[in-house]
Simulated scan of single mutants.
Amino acid sequence: MRRKWWIAAGVNLLMGVPAVVPVWLLWYIAVNGPLAELGWTVREPTENDGMLLWLVIVAPIVTAFVLLWWLANDFARRWNTTAARVYWPVCALVTLVPSLTLVILT
């Protein structure tokens, strides 16, 4: 059986485009929450409503995206014979390519 890696790569690159939103939301929470508490970043000065509101907004969005990503990759995995320990981390990294491209270009 031939490894059809291009199916998995295409699915994850396409999933990477809407992944920009959950990645940005997670980054925003990290920068204004735990990383600011540790002193690694400076909290946004106008962000004084607390983080609970952000968690109420972010949790459903991230959960929906992760579920959709998992289902799409589970479907694409049927045509790929790569070992699971290689397949899933590579798919996660390929999904981050559009977000990393935006970070590098801006």
Results as ranks from 00 to 15, higher is better:
G16R: 08
V58S: 11
A92E: 03
W40K: 00
G10T: 11
S99D: 07
V66L: 10
L67T: 11
E47N: 13
L53D: 00
V42D: 03
V21S: 03
L14E: 05
W69G: 09
P89V: 07
P45T: 01
N32T: 03
F65D: 05
G33A: 10
M51N: 05
L71V: 14
E47W: 10
L55H: 14
A76K: 04
L102R: 03
W24G: 03
A9P: 02
L100K: 07
P18K: 08
A36V: 15
F75S: 11
W88I: 07
V94K: 04
T81I: 11
L35D: 10
R77L: 02
W27K: 03
V31G: 04
V11E: 00
F75D: 00
G50M: 11
L102Y: 09
L68H: 02
M51L: 15
V56T: 08
A76D: 05
L100I: 03
L105N: 15
N32Y: 14
R2W: 14
V21A: 07
R78W: 04
S99E: 06
V58T: 13
P98D: 10
I29G: 06
T82P: 02
R77G: 00
L26I: 15
R43Q: 06
K4N: 14
V42S: 13
S99P: 08
S99C: 04
F65G: 05
M15H: 09
T101V: 15
L55T: 11
L105Q: 04
V90Y: 00
G50R: 12
W69M: 09
T82L: 06
N48T: 09
L96K: 01
R77C: 08
M1T: 07
V58D: 03
S99M: 06
L100M: 11
A30E: 00
M1Q: 14
V66D: 06
L38I: 02
R3Y: 14
N80Y: 07
R78P: 03
D74M: 13
W27A: 11
G39N: 08
R3S: 15
N80I: 02
T41L: 02
T81F: 09
E37L: 06
P22E: 06
K4S: 03
W69Q: 04
V56R: 12
P34R: 10
T81V: 13
V103H: 00
V31Y: 02
W69K: 09
C91R: 05
A64R: 01
G39T: 13
A84W: 04
W79S: 09
R78F: 00
L67D: 01
